[in-house]
Design a protein around this nucleic acid. Sequence first.
DNA 1: GATAAAATTTGATTTAAATCAAATTTTAGA
DNA 2: TCTAAAATTTGATTTAAATCAAATTTTATC
Lengths: 201, 201
Amino acid sequence: MITKFTFNSQYILSELPFNDREFLEQIMVDKKYRKNQPIFTEDTLPSGIFYLQSGKVKKYKMDNDGREQIIYIYNAGEFFGYSSVLSESTYGDTAVAIENSIISFITIKDFNEILKNSSSFSRLLLKSLSHEFSVLANLMAVLSQRTVRERVALNLLILHDKYKVDTIENTQILLSRSDLANMTGTVIETLARVLHDFKHD
Amino acid sequence: MITKFTFNSQYILSELPFNDREFLEQIMVDKKYRKNQPIFTEDTLPSGIFYLQSGKVKKYKMDNDGREQIIYIYNAGEFFGYSSVLSESTYGDTAVAIENSIISFITIKDFNEILKNSSSFSRLLLKSLSHEFSVLANLMAVLSQRTVRERVALNLLILHDKYKVDTIENTQILLSRSDLANMTGTVIETLARVLHDFKHD
DNA sequence: GATAAAATTTGATTTAAATCAAATTTTAGA
DNA sequence: TCTAAAATTTGATTTAAATCAAATTTTATC
């Protein structure tokens, strides 16, 4: 059920043939990002794609009034920022590290190179992107049809899954109220009230 | 601006190398669909992909209470239903013809064949799918951040573009109130009121 | 460790939009 | 063309959630 709301590009690296994977790992360049540090910004041209080695990254769209709608929160092992490169357009959203993160970068040139040479890679990307498309469609339906309470509950489930470590009991969701509100599509006051109510259950 | 909200897979056919296009057009099988006839249904397994020769098709998700959220309305020249095949999953939504339509069908077998043999085709699909992903992200932000009035106005612009014929003046949006409401994420009563208000402007 | 700043919670009020209900108009079928 | 059914509009009311405001708690900095 939760898979309807989570991307799964993690399998790209693991399912890639050895040679392709070797090449990819050689050309990736790691960089550390501190919490709150931007990775790319809406409406700018992409210079490559990203692979999240560790940490968490939020991707959001900002409206005219400065309200942000979080589209997705990426977890370790996921590729991101590739759809703008593939569609040959500017970034449609902004990506910011919400924890200290280590992110690998692959230049457009290298990305196109591997895309050209590896049909496995492009096939895996197509598969991953198709799933991501369905996730956004599911999120769309939730945003328009479910109440704030239901959306908060769903997002807590999704986040629990993303933040889970060794044992389920130890899972802590280290996310600000404003990020959770911006994921859910509500304001922080309403979110605080809903969370308060949930504690009685 | 409107391009942020419209798919553009039309270019796939036109940009395809001659041989690939020939092959594709040979294997496509046309079928007529009457208004309101379903094309595929949520949670069923895909047996191929579709190309809309003429007419209009809505794709929507149904929630438990029977409310539908329209994800997209396809126009002539667009491919659809391919993301479920690519992600190797069941259909995440239901497609229904909202006008009498002619739709070409390509079996999974043939689709995978051309995908394997034509790097142009897979590259074009990747490009198209990436754009479609960004469209859904944009729609998500609109659904969560804009008022009903704003969403209705935006959807009228989008539909005007989809329904436009020879001259702009002749454009008629032949879409039921309930479909427009389900696109906008509202109920028909509210939609009727908003449209009433718009007529004074 | 004290203090300021930021984040979160709680309270009161407003508002946009849904719901419920009924009237009117349009469409389709006999 | 008449009639019934479906679609749309209009009206009254309710409700979920946003907004405005202030208090409290947490976090970061000197």
